[in-house]
Design a protein around this nucleic acid. Structure first.
Lengths: 261, 261
DNA sequence: CACACGATTGCCGATGAACGGAAAAGCGAC
DNA sequence: GTCGCTTTTCCGTTCATCGGCAATCGTGTG
């Protein structure tokens, strides 16, 4: 804890400040930042000043501040996300070119799907995924693929929670989901019709890392009324293999049970 | 300044820690982190612990730490870079498809070009640009475009510095550069043969923001021996207009002097 | 022009989180 | 076992952090 009466460390406040910015609030006055974070006025100004000095925040002509270029740079330079994204992008473009709908790459983080990259969709389809956005595991094709390839104990902790039902096709019953996860694991892909938005279907496949573990899920969102949805699967599988290989994966070694059936 | 004997604020140390990670050192032990940052051992461990608690750093099985997923998420969600990147990506893909060499998007930051995005180049060309990487203004086509569209006082401060000569074609003479900048501003694009790497030429054009200022430079790197380099320019110009429009630019309003000649 | 309202900066005493040395506990490797 | 390394625990000192209060700046309003 920090010197603060409220008992927070500076790091905690730093997180609060950075969290105050999102795509709907990319910049704001320091006063508003204080309001959004709930920090005392003076404290906010002092801290913002420090951050400006280090260029973790940038001040724009109007006086508003936003996440600093330096901050983006440092994080991007050091983060492993960028490597993953760069490896995946060319293959995602291939998928995009063939499927013509939005293509996403997501990872499992804090019991949710975190979308690392997303391309496409000048299309009319409803797609609520955003880069650096999150969605629940049980209600997305990506999430189910990631969950299906997790340790079963972890699966149980997730299934034990209250699972929100977005549409009628959203599975929320643990035993149903358990069966479905097994199926996904066997088949090697997930197809979910309208589990979060009625009008669209998600298809997702796993992406493997060097140690043959699943590190991400590659997925597309297509209109639900399309009949031959499963026809999309091979493209995804092929591209996912490409990404996996770019990440250092060397084909299924021991312990790869998938093609067994 | 902080409680430290060395007289640094926590924010400063935070920056040191994050800066210690890059593409060559994406993860390391806490001890090595302490060594790289020059911070006292105990301090490093304490601070790293705080950062782990907030998930700004992640600990991996081996014990090594790396930039946390949460950190990437927060910064990406709030940063304006992502919006710029997303607006530009589809057009960059178009360029990429036509030109077949690596395409980059760079902005002006701290007297250097900071590359926001880069695609392409399974090709053989030497291209040293990296995402979140930096190169000097005077030695890149992107940099010269950005500089040419900056206030002349700023140009002078940059020209006043020692300009490193990477190859024989790198311009380092202030007066020569000044002439060249004027030309770039007039023509609306920059073509630089082998200014930083002998074998390749860079071509760059400006990208405009809503207020008709230059916010970024779109560029490609092609083999130098290619004869019809200027033939690449129109594609770039067209794509740059596309990006500009996606950013809210509404065509050249008052004060647009470029087509005058 | 005076006024109100909000954002921003300056001041300052009290407090406790941050600091970092030292030493001990793990952990391999030879 | 013993060396070399990383990591953790302990603890007294201290100064940066904290945040209330008030002054100042900036902008729009009656």
């Amino acid at each position: 804890m920090a010197n603060s009466a409220s008992g927070e460390s500076i790091i905690g406040r730093f997180v609060k400040i950075v969290s105050a910015f999102d795509d709907r609030h990319p910049s704001m006055s320091v006063a508003e930042l204080g309001r959004r974070t709930g920090l005392p006025v003076t404290t906010t100004y002092r801290l913002v000043n420090d951050l400006l000095l280090e260029r973790l925040l940038d001040r724009e002509p109007g006086g508003n501040v936003h996440i600093g270029t330096r901050m983006w740079e440092l994080v991007s330079r050091g983060s492993k996300m960028v490597g993953l994204r760069e490896a995946a992008l060319p293959f995602m473009e291939d998928v995009q070119a063939v499927v013509q709908h939005s293509t996403t790459l997501g990872i499992l983080d804090s019991d949710e799907v975190l979308y690392i990259e997303r391309i496409g969709s000048h299309s009319t389809i409803v797609d609520i995924t955003k880069i650096a956005g999150r969605l629940p595991l049980h209600a997305t094709s990506s999430g189910l693929v990631l969950l299906a390839n997790s340790p079963s104990e972890y699966q149980e902790t997730v299934l034990a929670r209250a699972l929100t039902k977005f549409t009628e096709t959203t599975l929320t019953d643990p035993s149903q989901l358990r069966r479905h996860l097994a199926e996904i694991r066997q088949r090697g892909y997930a197809v979910m019709p309208g589990v979060i938005v009625k009008e669209s279907s998600g298809i997702a496949v796993p992406v493997f890392g060097p140690d043959n573990t699943v590190v991400a899920a590659l997925s597309v969102v297509v209109p639900r009324n399309e009949e031959n949805v499963p026809a999309r699967v091979p493209v995804l599988l092929a591209s996912a293999r490409g990404i996996s290989r770019a990440l250092g994966w060397r084909g299924e070694l021991k312990g790869a049970l998938r093609q067994s059936h």
